[in-house]
Nucleic acid binder design. Structure first.
Lengths: 204, 204
DNA sequence: ATAAAAACTGCACCGTAAGTACAGTACTAA
DNA sequence: TTAGTACTGTACTTACGGTGCAGTTTTTAT
């Protein structure tokens, strides 16, 4: 028999696919347990309720995404010492990554949670908040390094700039989904990259 | 007794408030009819099902937003003949408008619908798609006028630029909601404005 | 004034899904 | 061998979306 945490992960895998395809509410527990080959009782052994599942889903999703960002950051750091180039390479790699996902980026569980207030407990919202604040911190540091070495050609707040990365990704995903144009998000990232370039880069 | 379309609008009003506050799924028909002071049968007289309600909600929301955009476009057109300045003023007005909404922008019903695939019928998705394509067209025209008069300082697609307006708004709303920072969206619009400026404006 | 259409009310009922309760069972590590 | 972990099975409750339909009030056109 499975190792316990095995089953838990299997539940999360199946739930994640279903949630990204149909939305959280549209995904029934009974459908999840059927897919995971367990019983309803088994599900409730692992998760107190659907909220707890959402929480776990967000936490796991954020963790995966963080590792992905870490990977891109490491690759861009390896390619240059210049803090501005680091950002530009990072954004390029990010765009490429989004482009190469055949089905488009799976879409962000976080955003989907943002638009469902009652259903979700405080714990879910807290998980969500942690995620977004984590991104802010990450990108803030990248832009602060660039600012220290290059003049800003327009007076903008570094914090806002950091948030813009997340906003463009999230907004891009919403649009991509709404229009069924999977690579829209990647193109939006490249526009953001263009902005960063114009904002920091010395002029010819 | 009310005039029929009165009741329908009352249902939409109450539904809209509830949906923006709690999400669509979390808003029960029973709660809507209680608020609108009608019976369940009365609700189903006006709307075939919950899908039809969503559709009506999106259509009405889009209409309101279109009028709002029209108003801002008219005001900025009145202030200048220069196509670039028109965009910059438009974005400034938009940011101000978002800032002055005490509770922050109500959040976009469209985005909320994007993340719930099964629940919604094709009609709902079509309404959504129409909305997003409408925005694309609107902003595309504005940017095309600017491009005809100013050099682009970075080779980007006008279509993508048009989508960026929507993406930044949508993404801004997601972030604002997740972090409970109502004016985040306005600041993101101003960043986009800064990009447009750097992208088109002749350098000193 | 009247008839027809529109805008409802009231009530009974069905299916689905979340969640509860709890007794029983199989596997697993000390 | 025993205690905990990881479940199964069954039965039940509640909430919600939705149906069906007969009856009632209100509005509108003639």
């Amino acid at each position: 028999m499975a190792k316990g945490s095995d089953t838990r992960n299997r539940i999360l895998d199946i739930a994640q696919d279903a949630v990204l395809a149909k939305g959280f509410d549209a995904t029934s527990i009974e459908e999840i347990v059927a897919g995971a080959d367990i019983t309803k009782s088994g599900f409730f052994y692992h998760f107190r309720d659907k909220n707890t599942l959402a929480e776990a889903l967000i936490d796991r999703h954020v963790k995966t995404e963080d590792e992905l960002f870490d990977g891109l950051a490491a690759r861009s750091s390896a390619l240059t010492d210049d803090p501005l180039q680091k950002i530009l390479i990072f954004l390029k790699l990010l765009a490429e990554l989004l482009e190469n996902m055949p089905e488009g980026h799976p879409g962000c569980i976080v955003a989907s949670a943002v638009y469902q207030d009652r259903l979700f407990s405080n714990a879910v919202h807290a998980a969500n908040r942690r995620a977004v604040l984590g991104w802010r911190k990450r990108f803030r540091e990248m832009f602060a390094m660039a600012e220290a070495n290059y003049p800003l050609h327009d007076p903008v707040e570094i914090d806002d700039l950091a948030d813009m990365v997340s906003a463009v990704i999230e907004g891009g995903l919403v649009m991509a989904r709404g229009l069924n144009e999977p690579d829209l998000t990647a193109r939006q990232i490249l526009l953001l990259r263009s902005y960063v370039k114009l904002l920091f880069q010395p002029r010819v």
